[in-house]
């Protein structure tokens, strides 16, 4: 792309379907194209070809204009890895959620307050934080706020890009629980992008493994994890630290795999 370099296919022939409340994990190493897929869904990248349908209605991915974007935002929302970067630091919790709510429906006064409280409840943010600003919140609270803001438009699909990767394990566990509740109670489908297989397993029914832009394996999480078919998936699973994990061995396997790929 640009400067006379050959075009790079960052994501190639990616297909999946999600039922309401269902969750797909997208896993792969850095540069595998998983984030590109997530960004295409919310309109941050424009795909060269392909289509997306939501609730049976075609949703062209490359739509222009405020009305088109707003319509898509009502159905697909995204949560990023770093909530500090994606939240406006001059807006308090209630202002942040209030703004997001008003974008989609003309709520006012008590009604608006009730909707804000309800959003905070669904991500378990304490009501006392209503007038706090992002810098006064912990990392976990900020990420909850980002999720609550995404829920404001009552989307059908929530795209999460490494949304819990920066959090420590106990906070991570709470957020994963919140996500599972949202899925069960509101029927929102999740696309969960992560490099952490163990996390994906906690929050997803299905998983898609990507390698250098190609989806190489796809299926029910437990099937893929217990009985991986593709060599890369096997490598990925054996790289996860656990009992008997040896970095030297993983490195040797990685070299072997790269060698095989370059021969092909």
């Amino acid at each position: 792309m640009g400067k006379g370099r050959p075009a790079v296919v960052a994501a190639n022939k990616v297909s999946f379907d999600l039922a309401p409340g269902e969750s797909l994990g997208l896993v792969g190493e850095s540069g595998s194209g998983k984030t590109t897929v997530a960004r295409m869904l919310v309109g941050l990248e424009t795909p060269d070809s392909g289509s997306v349908e939501i609730a049976g209605r075609d949703r062209a991915l490359n739509r222009r204009g405020a009305a088109g974007r707003k319509e898509r935002a009502a159905e697909i929302q995204m949560v990023f890895q770093d909530p500090y970067g994606s939240l406006d630091r001059r807006l308090s919790v209630s202002q942040c959620l209030g703004q997001a709510l008003k974008l989609q429906s003309p709520l006012r006064g008590d009604e608006l307050q009730r909707a804000i409280t309800e959003l905070m409840n669904s991500v378990r943010l304490e009501p006392r934080l209503l007038s706090s600003f992002p810098h006064q919140l912990s990392g976990g609270q900020r990420q909850r706020l980002a999720i609550a803001r995404a829920l404001a438009s009552s989307p059908k699909l929530l795209v999460l890009d490494e949304a819990v990767s920066a959090l420590d394990v106990s906070v991570q566990a709470q957020i994963l629980q919140v996500l599972n509740e949202i899925r069960a109670e509101r029927g929102i489908a999740l696309l969960f992008v992560s490099h952490d297989l163990a996390v994906i397993q906690e929050v997803s029914d299905k998983v898609m493994v990507m390698y250098r832009g190609d989806p190489i394996e796809q299926g029910i999480v437990s099937d893929v994890l217990q009985n991986p078919q593709h060599d890369y998936t096997k490598l990925l699973i054996s790289s996860v630290p656990g009992l008997g994990w040896d970095p030297d061995e993983v490195m040797a396997r990685r070299r072997e795999f790269d060698l095989l790929q370059s021969v092909r």
Partner: peptide, 13 residues
Amino acid sequence: SALDVTTQAEVLS
């Protein structure tokens, strides 16, 4: 922590 699992293993090695 910010590296993917195979890169992490490489660096730790």
